[in-house]
Simulated assay, not measured.
Amino acid sequence: MVKEIERAGFPVVQMCNLIPVATTVGSNRIVPTISIPYPLGNPADSKEHQWKLRYHRVGVALDALATDIEEQTVFKVKI
């Protein structure tokens, strides 16, 4: 679906934790997430820590959306 949306002229960022799958299906802008059941957080962490993780990753995704790319790119995130 990502490729079809981009083919229509809209840039897309795929946030996922299975980077090899995203590259195989042709996603162009990829932002790594944390895990399958909790991609943008960890319920075992404090609410403050979860907020920081989400804020950072969504920020990376927005930066990726605004970045011109020529090939598939996996954007770096802080651990």
Rank of each mutant, 00 (worst) to 15 (best):
residue 4 E to A: 14
residue 35 S to P: 01
residue 27 S to A: 15
residue 63 D to G: 06
residue 74 V to W: 05
residue 66 A to W: 01
residue 70 E to D: 08
residue 37 P to K: 08
residue 43 P to S: 01
residue 31 V to S: 10
residue 1 M to Q: 06
residue 17 N to M: 09
residue 27 S to N: 09
residue 55 Y to D: 08
residue 14 Q to V: 14
residue 28 N to E: 10
residue 3 K to F: 07
residue 15 M to K: 02
residue 8 A to D: 08
residue 24 T to M: 12
residue 7 R to G: 07
residue 54 R to N: 12
residue 72 Q to H: 04
residue 1 M to Y: 10
residue 17 N to T: 08
residue 70 E to P: 00
residue 24 T to D: 13
residue 62 L to I: 15
residue 18 L to G: 08
residue 74 V to C: 03
residue 36 I to N: 15
residue 57 R to N: 15
residue 19 I to T: 04
residue 3 K to Y: 08
residue 31 V to L: 03
residue 63 D to Q: 09
residue 56 H to N: 14
residue 64 A to K: 00
residue 39 P to Y: 14
residue 26 G to R: 03
residue 67 T to L: 03
residue 7 R to P: 00
residue 45 D to H: 08
residue 59 G to F: 15
residue 77 V to I: 13
residue 46 S to D: 12
residue 69 I to Q: 01
residue 45 D to N: 09
residue 24 T to N: 10
residue 19 I to Y: 01
residue 75 F to W: 08
residue 15 M to A: 10
residue 36 I to Y: 15
residue 4 E to H: 13
residue 13 V to L: 01
residue 14 Q to A: 13
residue 12 V to S: 03
residue 50 Q to T: 10
residue 24 T to C: 11
residue 43 P to M: 02
residue 49 H to I: 11
residue 36 I to W: 15
residue 39 P to G: 11
residue 34 I to K: 04
residue 78 K to C: 04
residue 50 Q to V: 13
residue 11 P to W: 04
residue 15 M to I: 13
residue 47 K to F: 09
residue 23 T to K: 07
residue 68 D to Q: 07
residue 45 D to Y: 14
residue 61 A to T: 12
residue 59 G to A: 12
residue 12 V to R: 00
residue 46 S to K: 08
residue 33 T to V: 10
residue 6 E to R: 01
residue 73 T to R: 06
residue 48 E to S: 02
residue 49 H to Q: 05
residue 25 V to I: 15
residue 66 A to I: 00
residue 48 E to Q: 02
residue 28 N to A: 09
residue 8 A to W: 09
residue 49 H to Y: 11
residue 71 E to Q: 10
residue 60 V to Q: 10
residue 38 Y to F: 15
residue 8 A to Q: 12
residue 65 L to R: 02
residue 11 P to K: 07
residue 53 L to Y: 07
residue 56 H to C: 13
residue 33 T to I: 02
residue 77 V to S: 00
residue 39 P to S: 12
